[in-house]
Design a protein around this nucleic acid. Sequence first.
RNA 1: GCGCCCGUAGCUCAGCGGAUAGAGCAACGGACUUCUAAUCCGAAGGCCGCAGGUUCGAAUCCUGCCGGGCGCACCA
Length: 583
Amino acid sequence: MADLEEMLHERLAPAFAEVAGEAADPTIRRSQHTGFAGGDQRGDFQSDGALALASRLGRNPRDIATDVVDQATLDDLCATVEVSGPGFINLTIDDVVLTRLCTEIGRDERLGVAPADNPETVVVDYSAPNVAKEMHVGHLRSTVIGDAAVRLLEWLGHRVHRANHLGDWGTPFGMMIEHLLDVGETEAAYELSIGDLDAFYKAARAKFNGDDIFAERSRRRVVALQSGDESTRRLWRQLVDESEKYFMTVYDRLDVRLSDKDFVGESFYNDRLQPVVAELDRLGLLRDSEGAQCVFPDGFTHRDGEPMPIIVRKSDGGFGYSATDLAAIRHRTQELGATRLLYVVGTPQRQHLEMVFQAARQAGWLTPPARAEHIGFGSILGRDGKMLRSRAGVPVKLVDLLDEAVARAAAVVAEKNPELDETVRTRVAHAVGIGAVKYADLSTDRTRDYLLDYDRMLSFDGNTAPYLQYAHARICSIFRRAGVEPPRDVQTLTVTEPAERALALELLGFSGVVAEVARSLEFHRLATYLHGLASTFTTFYVRCPVLQAEVEVRRSRLVLCDLTARTLAIGLGLLGIQAPDQM
RNA sequence: GCGCCCGUAGCUCAGCGGAUAGAGCAACGGACUUCUAAUCCGAAGGCCGCAGGUUCGAAUCCUGCCGGGCGCACCA
């Protein structure tokens, strides 16, 4: 246990309870130093619990704070403990403790982040492109955020199912199969494999709209597909396979962990729709409304207070997408045994998902400890502040966006470090370009829209991937230059300079942030932490020469460098971003 | 009409019950015989959309208003 906030909490909570006569939250947090004239006078951490207690106990908060400080055992952790202002307790960590804890996490592969004590089975539903349709920027966020969730939860020891809920079913497949037959299977396979998905889809759509005979063929084809006609199934499978192959090339380029085994498309649930609807009926949850079979989940009302439906079976007898969503929930909780279902889906779908979740709860398919969470995200906007679209007004192809980022990264790397040889440079450009795109996506509150700006995301200044990657590369450069291995068996560290101390303190915050993000899946908190760490490091880097320092100090600084590099690499890794050794 | 989300420095964003609201960019002033100056340091910049309310204390919670975005049954 190297989480200082938690350690302080454990020490102060009993003291607060003693003084208050009941349990009271010490409310520990890192102190804010900036903007405070007179410098570093608020300690490293502060406890604000006394203020909240004042009115409840009818006592002066300063007196309460003083009593708490008297009660608490803090000597072995803190160098100074001061009551300040209206009743804050300012806590300054003892340097000896700081160095001891850093040494401790330095010996740990996981930097002091313990695996979950109660690993659970988690399903992450993300990415979900549509067969024979191009991936566009809308899929970017789901894929990137979902991938980060998978990486983080797996790293913490949870069993994670990656559910790529591919759009591989529905009426459009009639026309796509007919179009496939028209152009010939070989030609179609070629078009799809080179990633010209939109052209294929559009051609099919155009014929469907303009050619009655084709439209009729398409409708018959849908029926054949649904009734399981063998040759139709084969053609359908071919469309799906080609698309999956194409999506895999995008995922590889994006450096995302999805594999071809993770495609669990809508069609997967076909056999389960009937039983789901039957069970809803048996449970008395199903009602007919205008010819459609609906569930009216509790708590959702329409315009004038009428209940709002989710349609599980359409009036034409076909199943609605809500039926698929419900079947997926039931499958995930009952067959996969999942207790945490994550839906990485845009915020506009919030209400739909909440209704489905509620219906599932009422059906008994989503009961504690199992729960579902909508990991919503906003839209990507262009520089004009509007939804990102290409000049033609269509959504921007995801691969085009990635190409642009990598090309720009390559140009920057070539300019800044011409000495890098060709292969390394290509690799670095990829890591930087893709990293920049992902980081831009993960570094702000995901529920909000964000502005896509290549110049900003690829800048080496500010809260960007390249800045973090650069900090990492510089550290690697130190070790490379000196020809030394990172010292991992060190017994003791020393911190003398303020910059060293600040870095040590920052390094110890990693486990707390990871724990918080595992709960909230607010990856921008991890990003903010990593940026703060990199920034603290660069200050240290400028102020504290490593290799020229005298033996003892040098070894100590090498440890701090190594710890920083590992924290950055692991932290970026959890976000799905590479940390190259040089750039 | 109903519902959800968002208005914080010129720009992009953190902070979401606690001290004099923070970063980065841009603009301004400094720092390269020293481990990648792809950086660092400094100064400047804010009635936290507006108005009420709750609280010892509000950018943060509640209500109303203004402005912007997005949803509201057989497409997912």
